[in-house]
Measured scan of single mutants.
Amino acid sequence: MIVFVRFNSSHGFPVEVDSDTSIFQLKEVVAKRQGVPADQLRVIFAGKELRNDWTVQNCDLDQQSIVHIVQRPWRKGQEMNATGGDDPRNAAGGCEREPQSLTRVDLSSSVLPGDSVGLAVILHTDSRKDSPPAGSPAGRSIYNSFYVYCKGPCQRVQPGKLRVQCSTCRQATLTLTQGPSCWDDVLIPNRMSGECQSPHCPGTSAEFFFKCGAHPTSDKETSVALHLIATNSRNITCITCTDVRSPVLVFQCNSRHVICLDCFHLYCVTRLNDRQFVHDPQLGYSLPCVAGCPNSLIKELHHFRILGEEQYNRYQQYGAEECVLQMGGVLCPRPGCGAGLLPEPDQRKVTCEGGNGLGCGFAFCRECKEAYHEGECSAVFEASGTTTQAYRVDERAAEQARWEAASKETIKKTTKPCPRCHVPVEKNGGCMHMKCPQPQCRLEWCWNCGCEWNRVCMGDHWFDV
């Protein structure tokens, strides 16, 4: 396979590697080409510095992935760790964990309700045991953590790749202090920090972006993250068709209702045909949960890209028209025109101005929308079919299609509260000796007794199943 190397943020060049090629071997190839010592090179990928003893497969490097290699003399205490030698983080029983690669970060837990604080980093599902597709590297999971809308060759929703760059020099040479644990960490600028490894760059702020994971991409090709779309790892039924499908869209209502993408497309087109989208002054033209839940309008309007190009163009047109109407304007009634106009409040005669090729020149009556006339309008008909009709959803289907309910059931079956801080902690095999993952707590306690870890627990039921 081919990976592209950008040395000291210059133009990239291809390097041929195998899945079992080590990072140090990659350094040696680059060092020979650039005429520099291999031990002064640092390989940066997806916000993480890659260790010498890791392989291309370990690092989730795919065909035509772009890695950054910078030349920086080692500072005291760094060289041993980078070589894969006596790194205290690798000691058996050590409590410190390697910062998780962005290629394996899962933010789907952050669609849980606000009262489930902490689960994004504490609760991990076991539903990723799908067998890898044919042709994928051994052991590589097909679980997708992110979804994007690819405006490039795909023109559809695709699995996405999370990447990070330095907000100062805009190069992907920043190593994160810690990985993101929720969508806010990724979507809110300057929320996460790190250290830029580019020479002479003092940058410390992280800037995240997404790429389409279905095809090789260049540095400049980015895609918009659709953070309401998630892999259906909890096997929730769709609120409309009641099938279990994946991926799904999880509405931001209190129940976190789930809808499959085909039904979401149908829901949007139906509402669009009836012009029953909601115009929100802050958000724009949007839709609420299909069950009509309060405070559930979709905030990231790129989710409506699921409509496809033709329907999305209609959505944008109707949204612009609705904006004009909300501002007190009118639409030209001549067939084939429909231009938005903003006449004076007491102006009865409205002319669709033909300047700049935008208007048709038609003069019409503001009251009856017919060709302009003197005197009273002959008839004014009330528009028919403008009443909002509820999208029919079966109550039982709505009850079963809740992301929140599956989460709470998982928590109930696989977790116990920490005796000190009461945060839910998952036990997935292993011994009875637990350690609270909350940095402010870190209590060592017994899963069996529910009390602080002691010699009695150690001698009596340390390794009970």
Rank of each mutant, 00 (worst) to 15 (best):
C238P: 01
S384L: 09
S110D: 14
C332I: 02
C253H: 01
E221I: 06
S181E: 12
Q282F: 09
C289M: 00
I2F: 09
T177D: 15
C150D: 00
K27I: 04
S109I: 02
V56W: 04
V3K: 03
C457W: 01
M192L: 13
E452I: 15
A398Q: 14
Q155F: 07
C446N: 00
C293Y: 00
E370I: 04
D262H: 04
V350Q: 04
S296E: 01
L283M: 10
L272I: 08
D86T: 12
S19A: 13
R455W: 04
R6H: 06
F7M: 06
K211C: 14
T204L: 06
E374H: 05
D219S: 09
W74E: 14
W453H: 00
D60F: 06
Q78R: 11
A206P: 09
C150L: 00
V164H: 09
G47E: 02
P199D: 12
R170G: 14
G114R: 13
V29R: 09
T410K: 09
V380R: 08
N428G: 09
E321N: 09
D346K: 09
R455H: 15
E310N: 06
W54A: 13
V186P: 00
A206M: 03
C263H: 00
V393T: 07
E49A: 02
F210Q: 00
V258Y: 01
E195C: 08
T387C: 10
D62C: 11
T173Y: 06
A339S: 12
P247Y: 04
W74P: 14
G355Y: 09
P343K: 07
Q438V: 04
A401K: 02
V36F: 04
T410I: 08
D346Q: 09
Y391V: 06
K32A: 15
R366S: 09
C166E: 01
V425Q: 14
P153C: 06
Q438R: 05
F277E: 01
G459A: 15
S65C: 08
V164F: 10
I2T: 14
L112D: 14
D18T: 13
G94L: 14
E310C: 06
G118K: 11
L112M: 14
L307M: 08
G12T: 07
R420Q: 14
V111H: 13
H433N: 06
N356M: 07
A46R: 15
T388R: 12
Q389D: 13
V244Q: 06
V258Q: 01
S116M: 08
W403S: 03
